[in-house]
């Protein structure tokens, strides 16, 4: 009985201690981490492959570096995403084999980014831009005139 009580007490103390040092980051804190989509621009037209650029206040890197990374996903569905582990502030290419583009139809979509801790928990910084997929031309273009994409999403 004494052993069980000690084990339960230790478990409770451990849980409280861990709850105190874990958590989902620094959302809303002044001077907290930031992330912003640089390309494509809000309202831009996008054809695959497209150029994507994200800018974060944090160093990005693979999980084993302990650095942050960015989840890039569409239309708020964060169960399917592209992992951005490098290229902070530099243009990178999102190609047709990215999981976020599987089954995506032409038309208006929202590109979301979420800054993540190395353990994949949210670091509290997010951004989004509305774009139109499927417009003619390759890569992304900034500030479209709202032209609706009617052609194939993939520009091979």
């Amino acid at each position: 009985m004494k052993t069980k009580l000690m084990a339960l007490t230790a478990t409770g103390v451990l849980a409280v201690a861990l709850a105190g040092c874990g958590g989902d980051g620094d959302a809303g804190e002044e001077g907290g981490p930031t992330v912003a989509i640089v390309q494509p621009a809000e309202g831009g037209t996008v054809a695959v492959p497209f150029t994507f650029e994200v800018d974060s206040s944090e160093d990005l890197g693979p999980t084993d570096t302990g650095n942050h990374h960015v989840h890039l996903y569409l239309d708020g569905d964060d169960s399917v995403y592209e992992v951005i582990e490098s290229g902070n502030g530099e243009p990178i290419e999102i190609t047709a084999d990215s999981p976020i583009l599987a089954g995506v139809a032409d038309g208006e979509h929202t590109i979301n980014v979420s800054l993540r801790n190395a353990d994949h928990s949210a670091a509290g910084a997010e951004d989004e831009v509305a774009v139109v997929f499927g417009a003619a031309g390759s890569g992304s273009t900034g500030g479209s005139d709202g032209e609706e994409g009617t052609e194939d999403l993939y520009d091979y």
Binding site: L18, C21, G23, D64, H68, N117, A118, D119, S121
Partner: peptide, 21 residues
């Protein structure tokens, strides 16, 4: 695994990650 969650990132995370892996 608990350590990875507790520190979320940084140098301690790198070590917990090595042990976990």
């Amino acid at each position: 695994g608990v350590g990875l969650w507790a520190v979320s990132g940084g140098p301690a995370f790198v070590w917990f990650n090595r042990v976990h892996r």
